[in-house]
């Protein structure tokens, strides 16, 4: 039985090796070489492209990417947590409906949604025409970071709401009753019971928003108008236009390492919370 099951996993293992492991090694390989990528003989070991990453121009790109991803994650958390809390406290009958309303946008193509925001926010877009019509000042955020943030929050918010909602809805109602039984009013029950119990959801929500946000390139390209290039845009450019696969690869590797570090930090927070049992204070 066990053996049969193991055989069933082989197709995926083959898939993974061909399309994930090999490309990863290729990227690693390109990042540490220089030369003509079409002529394997000309390639030689070099850390030149990594040195290039350390140039102020590119460090700024990486810094901007992390800053924007960080801000949009924070906004998603602030907006998403109350929503998750409200949905989790809604009558069972309406919960799935509410949840669906939140998820419907994800069913639409990501690019399409971002284009929709473009036509809404652009200098002559719907919003500005409406504002002009009623005599209000125009909204000039696109192209720019504000529009990029808006796009990120809009696109990634469901990924924050969903895991938090899942954790919140699993909290035993009797535990909340126990808190009020022991003298905890609503505020105390939230800060000392609900919030600490929902940390695992918050952690996975942050992870699920931060990761795509830090590596996005479509949103910044379309809504930011290239004003603030992000690391995702940079990688895209190096591979598609500049044709410098070595530099693109080292940017990718740097991004990957930084993501791995952030994930390690997040899982550390999660683990601490579970083990130590976040002291009620």
């Amino acid at each position: 039985m066990k053996k049969t099951l193991r055989i069933l996993a082989y197709p995926y293992v083959v898939w993974m090796v061909i399309f994930i492991v090999v490309p990863l090694f290729l990227i690693l390989f390109y990042s540490f070489t220089k030369g003509d990528i079409h002529d394997i003989g000309s390639l030689e070991f070099s850390v030149e492209s990594y040195k290039k990453v350390a140039e102020p121009l590119y460090l700024k790109v990486i810094g901007d990417s992390f800053l924007l991803a960080f801000i949009s994650t924070a906004i998603c958390l602030v907006l998403g947590y109350p929503v998750a809390l409200i949905i989790a406290n809604t009558d069972q009958k309406y919960r799935s409906l509410l949840m669906m309303l939140f998820l419907v946008p994800i069913w639409m193509n990501f690019l399409l949604r971002t284009y929709a925001w473009m036509s809404l926010l652009s200098p002559n877009g719907l919003i500005n025409r409406f504002l002009t019509a009623i005599g209000l000042p125009r909204l000039e955020i696109m192209p720019g970071n504000a529009a990029v943030l808006l796009g990120m929050v809009y696109n990634f918010l469901p990924f924050m709401v969903l895991p938090i909602y899942t954790v919140l809805s699993k909290i035993d109602k009797q535990v909340l009753e126990a808190s009020s039984d022991l003298g905890g009013n609503k505020v105390v029950t939230f800060t000392r019971v609900i919030l600490p119990l929902s940390i695992p959801g918050v952690v996975s929500g942050i992870t699920m928003v931060f990761l795509p946000a830090v590596s996005t390139f479509v949103i910044s390209g379309l809504l930011g108008g290239g004003k603030t290039p992000l690391i995702g845009d940079m990688i895209e450019q190096q591979f598609l236009f500049a044709r410098n696969w070595h530099f693109g690869s080292s940017l990718s590797i740097i991004l990957m390492v930084m993501i791995l570090i952030s994930m390690a930090v997040m899982s550390r927070i999660d683990k601490n919370n579970q083990e130590e049992g976040g002291k009620a204070r």
Binding site: V175, E177, A178, G277, K279
Partner: peptide, 16 residues
């Protein structure tokens, strides 16, 4: 000024 022992204990799993 009344306390309850709940059926399924309802302990706080995030605390010792």
């Amino acid at each position: 000024n009344i306390n309850t022992v709940f059926q399924r204990y309802a302990l706080f799993t995030h605390m010792n």
